[in-house]
């Protein structure tokens, strides 16, 4: 009963979805598109930079790891929830992650030859409030980023 009320109290106020190919040239498009959508909450420059950075990490992981030697589809869904919460879901249908806990350890990388620093998940965690990863080997990965934007005075 209580849980149901909590779930019901989360309202989706606005939503957008973009799907694009896993080309590295789309990395800047992806973070700009999300930032442009989130701008309606009047975030600070710092908050917007946090979101851009976290999205860039998640999308880069799809390009570099999920679709290593191929081009696949990346899908981003952004929802504005009540209480100024932004929920961003980045999804690929790539190779998947075998051990998520290990993948999320700072400095862990399976692509050192590409000068990956192994800090993508650490950055997402530091720049967002909640980071969730769901993955199945062979069918893909979904990363969910939640961040609350501070309400601005005079914001109606």
């Amino acid at each position: 009963m209580f849980l149901k009320e909590v779930v019901n109290s989360v309202k989706v106020l606005n939503e957008m979805t973009v799907t694009f190919e896993s080309r590295s040239s789309n990395e800047s498009f992806a973070r700009s598109a999300v930032a442009a959508f989130v701008a309606q909450l009047d975030p600070t420059i710092g908050e917007l930079n946090d979101i851009r950075t976290a999205v860039s990490e998640a999308v880069t992981n799809c390009v570099v790891h999920a679709y290593k030697d191929q081009i696949g589809k990346i899908s981003i869904n952004v929802r504005i929830l009540s209480d100024n919460i932004v929920c961003i879901r980045i999804r690929d249908k790539g190779c998947g992650i075998e051990d998520i806990d290990k993948a999320m350890e700072p400095l862990f990388t399976t692509a050192p030859e590409e000068e990956r620093a192994g800090l993508g998940f650490a950055v997402m965690q530091s720049f967002c409030d909640i980071v969730k990863v769901r993955s199945n080997v062979g069918s893909g990965t979904t990363v969910t980023l939640n961040k609350r934007i501070s309400p601005r005075v005079g914001n109606g």
């Binding site: 973070r31 930079n49 950075t53 860039s56 880069t60 000068e115 990956r116 620093a117 950055v123």
Partner: peptide
Amino acid sequence: NFMDSSGIGLIMG
């Protein structure tokens, strides 16, 4: 203007 962890990899390299 903007940098993600790719910049860290760049410096480390």
